[in-house]
Simulated assay, not measured.
Amino acid sequence: MASDYYTLLGVDRSASPEEIKKAYRRLARQLHPDVNDAPDAADRFKEVTQAYEVLSDPKKRQIFDRGGDPTSQGRGGGGFGQGFSFDDIMDAFFGQSSPRGPRSRVQRGQDALLRLDVELAEAVYGATHELKVDTAVVCEVCDGSGAQEGSGPATCGTCRGQGAIQHVQRSLLGDIRTARACPTCHGYGTVIPDPCRACDGDGRVRSRRSLTLTIPAGVDHGTRIQLAGEGEIGPGGGPAGDLYVEIRVQRHPVYARSGDHLECEVTIAMTAAALGTSLDLPALRADLEENESGPDTITVDVEAGVQSGQVVVVRGEGVPRLRGAGAGDLRVRVLVETPTHLDDEQRELLHRLAVLRDEQRPEARLGATHRSVFGRIKDAFR
């Protein structure tokens, strides 16, 4: 007579299949020879595995409850009755069974990535682009089924529609059954005897199509715009993946972007710097083919006495904030140009100005040179 399998698993005789399964999981984790090096661990693991094999099978459990020995019926040499499935061991250790049954031919398509070069003005103020995309689309001949018209998938004769082939391997623990994808149907459980000639049974073909992309105002270099459902159609006519468009902003001859701000440099004459002036700069939005949102120029007021390198800020003329209200600023760096070619009259006027300002021999104002970055870090640690 076999051992008391209920006692081995530590469950009552009225235990449900789920309670038996949980008990076996717990003991298998404790007693498996790969995790337990006790001398009797392997033997105890065999015992609880045999107990689980019997109690998890309604017919064998009924024989055992009536006092019979279910392992003696149909026993092969040197094993635990009919053996046990490798999926049960995986189930015990990882808490879930490996996938069973055929897999669907209809699958989601892959995402696609497209890089798009845009002008700075288009990135700042937004634009619309027509895209040409080469992706997989549903085969119009078979409508995604992959089968020639008038035919369809047939049950695989190798795996009989299961999608997997069972393999039995003998070991010290008994007969271990493992399942592998069927080599004939590749796990689908069906084959297509007469595949579509247009798509060769894949249910999709390559094609070029047009898309309209709306670029929101304020995108930056490297921003990715997601177009849901515009990627690759999946095998078997499955749902499409997403299309991601990565924005690459080209350099501009006048303006540069710094976060939400636009920056540029202007050079003015020495007299204009001393007396003050007003400049009309070309607006970045003027680069757009359809500019209906503002003037083509921006007026920048330079105060008298501006110094070379000083920055003049024009509020609200920068980049619209992509996630938020308002816009950044336009920062204009002023460079003062010293005249180099003077005629006699101009030289005389400058001499008279120097006399009036008592600057014939002006004293130089000395100041500390800018320390290097590493020098400032070194001072900070001191």
Rank of each mutant, 00 (worst) to 15 (best):
L8H: 11
G10P: 04
G10W: 05
G10S: 05
V11C: 04
D12P: 04
R13C: 04
E18N: 13
I20S: 11
R29Q: 11
D40N: 13
A41K: 05
A42W: 03
F45R: 02
E47P: 00
V48K: 00
L55A: 09
S56R: 13
D65L: 13
G67W: 04
G76S: 14
G77M: 15
G78C: 14
F80N: 14
D87E: 10
D91A: 08
A92V: 07
F93S: 07
G101V: 00
P102K: 04
L114D: 11
D117W: 00
V118Y: 02
E119A: 09
G126K: 04
T128W: 09
L131R: 00
D134H: 14
V141E: 15
D143C: 06
A147Q: 09
Q148C: 10
Q148T: 12
S151D: 11
G152W: 02
T158S: 06
Q162R: 12
A164I: 02
H167T: 10
V168H: 06
Q169I: 08
R180K: 03
C182R: 01
P183W: 00
H186Y: 12
G187T: 08
I192D: 08
P193I: 10
P193F: 10
D194F: 08
C196D: 11
C199W: 02
R206Q: 14
S210K: 09
L211R: 05
I215V: 11
I215M: 02
R224T: 10
R224C: 00
L227K: 03
E230K: 13
P235L: 06
G237N: 03
P239H: 04
G241Y: 04
G241H: 07
I247A: 01
H252S: 05
P253I: 07
Y255D: 08
H261L: 09
E265D: 13
E265H: 12
I268C: 01
A273G: 15
A274L: 15
G276D: 05
T277A: 11
L284I: 01
R285V: 00
N291M: 03
G294N: 09
T299A: 12
V300T: 06
V302C: 13
V302E: 07
A304W: 08
S308T: 15
V313N: 06
V314Q: 03
P320K: 02
P320R: 06
L322G: 05
R331Q: 07
V336W: 01
T340M: 13
T340Y: 06
E348V: 06
L349Y: 10
A354T: 12
V355L: 15
T369G: 13
I377G: 11
D379T: 13
R382G: 13
